[in-house]
Design a protein around this nucleic acid. Structure first.
Lengths: 205, 205
DNA sequence: TAGAATAGTGACTGATTACTATCTTTTGAG
DNA sequence: CTCAAAAGATAGTAATCAGTCACTATTCTA
């Protein structure tokens, strides 16, 4: 009962994407085969091609799955937070928490960014990062309007740094092979980031 | 005359590594084949295996080549700079310049970090990053001793952030597909980083 | 300049891979 | 309960790849 072998197409596609993301958490994305994905799902390899036109389409679906969820998570975290810098912090922590819950995500997205010639999936990744940047920039601009940022702060660089900040934690987790540890390190990392952008040092953390 | 086909083994290995790094600048590392590396060098595929025991050994040599050079570059840039924060800045700019000169390097190293099960090459990458971190930490500690850093600054997070800062620029260059642009963005990125760690705002940049 | 040592060629092999037919089983609507 | 449509199994295929090997061309040394 726990695992029906015949599933409706929508659900099978969902399971495929989840299996792929989960596998990326412990194997190199580039060496993942359709056979490996299928066997993880308890299904034969040929069955995948009833639901996806190609292997590339599976990657595309996975990236779309991630993009949708990460943006929703981050938006939900920032929603209702009036203070822009607090909203940035909420986004930061939500982003890191999402990664900790899905350790395969950084490897999967990084793997897609490795393609220099854009594919459908890599275009989605680039689009995700651009939307993310735009959201960061609008929050930074709002903070600037409120006089909370350093005079002469390069907002573009500040948005890049935000992403780099997450990326630094991810890189560290890959070296140490400890993904869950990034949640503990995240507050200190954002504290450092905030000191880099805001007008002057307020209270002690 | 310009391209002899028979080369001594040392030189052929060097050329192989250079070809690999150059190819990583425009192709996905994971899909690079020995045939592709060989054809770029004007040599047949089988010839590579006279100089390398396996494909894995080629990757290992490439990572060693990069590790040696990037550490030397960064050390040379910081050498003789008495002020620790100035030394950090010199390292930062030297690092970014190195990447701009070798656009394949980030993709190659990131590709190696994708392997969750450590290989000889990925161990070298992790070792490189650890040595790098240690060097950063010692500079940060020296700056701290001189009272140049914020009270209560998390030095570990500061070292991570430094690497993340470079990584943010790299990520941006991958999205925009413009590697040389990171050199122009580097000073602003470091300026932001410095504001995050140092004791108080000095003069205007 | 002979000839040994080194470097490269070309043809090959076994393993792996994405993808595809053809057949069988399951599911759900009337 | 029936039966058509959907989902999966089985067994392929052609292509690709790392690595091998016997042979040939080049280079260096004595």
């Amino acid at each position: 009962m726990s695992q029906r072998q015949h599933l409706p197409a929508d659900e099978r596609r969902e399971r495929t994407v989840e299996a792929l993301i989960e596998l990326c958490g412990r194997e190199e994305p580039a060496t993942l085969t359709t056979g490996r994905i299928a066997s993880r799902m308890g299904v034969t390899q040929g069955a995948l091609f009833r639901h996806f036109a190609s292997k590339e389409a599976i990657w595309e679906a996975a990236v779309a799955w991630i993009a949708e969820r990460v943006m929703a998570r981050v938006a939900a975290a920032a929603e209702g937070v009036e203070e822009p810098l607090a909203a940035l912090e909420a986004m930061f922590l939500a982003h890191v928490a999402f990664i900790a819950e899905h350790p395969g995500v950084p490897r999967l997205l990084m793997g897609q960014l490795q393609h220099p010639h854009p594919t459908a999936a890599s275009r989605l990744v680039r689009g995700l990062l651009e939307r993310y940047r735009r959201r960061l920039l609008s929050l930074l601009e709002e903070a600037g309007r409120r006089g909370q940022l350093r005079a002469g702060l390069d907002l573009d660089a500040a948005a890049t740094q935000f992403i780099g900040c997450v990326q630094g934690l991810v890189l560290l987790s890959m070296i140490a092979d400890d993904v869950s540890g990034i949640v503990d390190r995240a507050p200190a990392a954002f504290e450092l980031y905030r000191h880099g952008i805001r007008a002057d040092a307020g209270g002690v953390a």
